[in-house]
Design a protein around this nucleic acid. Structure first.
Lengths: 141, 141
DNA sequence: CTGGATCCGTTACGATACTG
DNA sequence: CAGTATCGTAACGGATCCAG
């Protein structure tokens, strides 16, 4: 998955009696855990086709290097189609493949959950940090 | 996002007229993009509570170090509850919070998509690699 | 023995600059 | 316009070590 893409997928030896369904998300980890992949898919899903620099402008924070790397990965995975037009200046258009388009709706529940619960997470973080700070102050007397 | 957790979330300046909904997945990237976070959430979702080493055994491939780090993060985010029992030997139990439990079903569509389309992705990868290899052979004469 | 922490190497990422 | 080159950072993976 992006970093650590080359993970040893060795089988886990299960103790007898332990019977838990393996995490079903793991297989697509390579896609989902990549830093910008979901954002790229989402953005391409909003616009039928986009040129490299357009995509770059629409995704603030990503650098050309990373954007290139993710697009190549998504192209290899068959989620994105890259079309090179040998014009002057050169023109390259990116679009979702059918496979890529099928993934976009899947991101929805994730996004909805985020919108709904992000505030709770922020609160939890502040609470945790406060508790840790207090704890530390107590130790340092 | 685990790696690169400390990402500058600077606003992107949009060119006038470009009107695209920002990727709604980004806000929960810190949670979802972490290498083991979904797996941990999923595994805890199957079992009401689990001890550290039990969790370790159930998630093959993760090292104690990483497992600890992710559990701390998820605890800070309010998704996981950590309970320390000062027994001998010591006992630490991990379980999902209500917030954490609410996230598990969200992973479903992702998992289903993966099960359905993973073969297509494998095929696309082989096709891409073959094309590249052929191309290279052509260049090298 | 359990629940970690430390040391060290690898690799994805990020920032800036430069090129066909 | 569409990337590539170079460099530094930080999250991960493996192995080992440690305290209660």
């Amino acid at each position: 998955m992006s970093h650590h893409l080359n993970v040893s997928r060795r089988e886990g030896r299960r103790a007898a009696g332990e019977r838990i369904e393996a995490c079903p998300v793991t297989p697509i980890g390579d896609i989902i855990f990549s830093r910008w992949a979901p954002t790229i898919l989402w953005t391409l899903g909003q616009q039928s086709t986009l040129r490299f620099n357009a995509l770059h402008r629409l995704i603030p924070g990503v650098t050309p290097k990373i954007l290139t790397a993710r697009l190549r990965q998504l192209e290899r995975d068959g989620l994105v189609k890259r079309t090179y037009h040998p014009d002057l200046p050169p023109r390259v258009e990116y679009a979702l493949s059918d496979l890529g388009r099928s993934m976009v709706p899947v991101l929805r529940p994730l996004a909805d959950w985020g919108r709904q619960h992000m505030p709770d997470i922020e609160i939890a973080r502040h609470a945790y940090d406060s508790a840790r700070a207090e704890e530390e102050a107590w130790v340092n007397g």
